[in-house]
């Protein structure tokens, strides 16, 4: 959409997160899922939150839109385009979702109502946020569907969600997210459920849209390959914390945190054949029972007594890179 309704938000800092922490409190447990997460994001930038299941990547992203279950207790400060999300009521949050920040989910089927056509649903979102007539909105939906490269878009306007293939549904979902020209696009594993040949199409589309529209984008994924295709910067998450951050290219070529190194050596790639993989030992962390020091220590090859006693904080070791580790592999990383 080449429209500039929220043009002033197009430049400068879009996201500022300070000491974000999220706990889930239920009758049986009180579990910290995100701790001490801080980061900023500028317009036009793509940040990838990369981590395995239970790392807190998805919760971190959802807290930017206040999209957390009622059991969640959020601490710290989250600013999105000048709105302090952590202080907003559900009503205020609704006005932010769409024009300020929008989200693309892993399973588009759950984001659409099965009994209305996608054209109607996207048009109604636009009408409710911008107060324009349904007719004008519908014309805009057509533009949107063309923007996300849905073939014969005019015909798809009247399609029900179940009538679309997985790839088309995800495109429609992206159109819905873009319908109010958000300054920030949040994507939660948007290509994980898709086939390989469709996944690459959607990734390329998102990359192109993000560039053309200058949106700040946060991408949650467990797949290093996806991060390599789309990210400018990466934050590696483990057990609810950022363990390493930096630009995607140097982080992949010179990982500093033992977890990042382990993750890269565990990932099967083209030249893995013929030799045993070097996986990280042990299983995923139990968030209800994290060790006192470094959360990764029990699985870490570089573990020392210090790691069990003192929790490392995220410390910059170059202008763009930071790692939360007492023994980062700095000799291999560029200064």
């Amino acid at each position: 959409m080449p429209r500039e309704t929220t043009g002033q938000a197009r430049a400068g800092r879009i996201v500022e997160v300070q000491d974000l922490s999220v706990r889930f409190v239920t009758r049986d447990a009180d579990i910290s899922v995100v701790q001490d997460v801080s980061f900023t994001l500028d317009a036009g930038e793509v940040l990838c939150l990369l981590g395995e299941s239970g790392s807190g990547k998805s919760v971190t992203m959802r807290s930017l839109l206040g999209l957390l279950p009622p059991t969640a207790r959020v601490g710290g400060r989250v600013m999105v385009s000048g709105h302090e999300v952590t202080r907003m009521t559900e009503r205020q949050l609704e006005s932010v979702r769409g024009p300020v920040a929008a989200m693309v989910f892993q399973e588009p089927m759950t984001a659409f109502d099965p009994v209305f056509t996608i054209g109607t649903q996207i048009a109604e979102t636009i009408v409710s946020h911008e107060g324009i007539s349904y007719r004008v909105a519908r014309a805009r939906v057509l533009e949107l569907l063309e923007l996300v490269q849905i073939p014969s878009a005019a015909r798809r306007l009247d399609a029900y969600p179940h009538e679309l293939s997985g790839g088309l549904r995800q495109r429609a979902m992206i159109a819905l997210a873009l319908s109010c020209s958000p300054a920030l696009l949040l994507a939660d594993e948007p290509t994980t459920a898709l086939d390989a040949t469709v996944q690459i199409q959607i990734l390329l589309l998102l990359r192109q849209l993000q560039r053309d529209l200058g949106m700040a984008t946060i991408f949650v994924t467990h797949d290093i390959g996806v991060a390599c295709e789309i990210a400018d910067r990466v934050a590696i998450m483990y057990a609810g914390r950022f363990v390493e951050t930096g630009p995607i290219d140097t982080l992949i070529s010179h990982p500093a945190h033992p977890y990042t190194i382990g993750l890269l050596s565990s990932t099967v790639h083209e030249s893995s054949r013929g030799r045993p993989l070097a996986p990280i030992q042990g299983g995923p962390p139990d968030l209800a029972d994290l060790p006192g020091g470094c959360g990764f220590a029990p699985r870490c090859v570089a573990r020392t007594a210090l790691c069990d006693q003192v929790r490392p904080t995220l410390i910059p070791f170059s202008t763009t890179r930071a790692a939360a580790c007492h023994h980062p592999a700095l000799e291999t990383a560029p200064a």
Binding site: Q281, G282, G283, D286, D289
Partner: peptide
Amino acid sequence: TAHTPARRP
């Protein structure tokens, strides 16, 4: 090396 004991209740 195939596994390390998980810390579980």
